[in-house]
C-alpha cells in the first residue's frame, strides 16, 4: 500500500476507533459525519478509491461510513 494511502487508512481507522466506543447505534453515521466535516474532497476521493480497490486495512466501521457517504442523498 502506498504511504499516502496507508496514512489515510490509519487516520480513518483512528476516527472509527473513537466512535466505536460511543453508546447508541449511530457510530457509522458519526464517522461519516466526521469525515464529511473535516476531510477535504481529495482526501475523501482517495479513501473511496481505496475502498473500491478492496479497502485493505480499513475497519468495518469506516467501510460502513463510506457506504453512507456515497449514498445518493
Amino acid at each position: 500500500m502506498p504511504a499516502d494511502v496507508q496514512k489515510l487508512v490509519r487516520m480513518a481507522n483512528q476516527i472509527a476507533t473513537f466512535f466505536d466506543t460511543q453508546p447508541g447505534d449511530t457510530q457509522a453515521a458519526e464517522v461519516a459525519a466526521h469525515l464529511k466535516s473535516f476531510w477535504e474532497p481529495r482526501m475523501l476521493q482517495a479513501l473511496y478509491a481505496h475502498v473500491d480497490a478492496g479497502g485493505a486495512g480499513l475497519s468495518p466501521l469506516v467501510l460502513q461510513a463510506v457506504g453512507r457517504l456515497r449514498e445518493p442523498v
Binding site: D4, K7, S37, F38, W39, E40, P41, R42, M43
Partner: peptide, 17 residues
C-alpha cells in the same frame, strides 16, 4: 467543502496536487 489542514497540505504536496 472543508479545505486541507496543514498536514494534509503537505501530504497533498508530496502527492503532487
Amino acid at each position: 467543502e472543508p479545505g486541507l489542514r496543514i498536514p494534509n497540505m503537505l501530504d497533498a504536496a508530496v502527492e503532487g496536487t
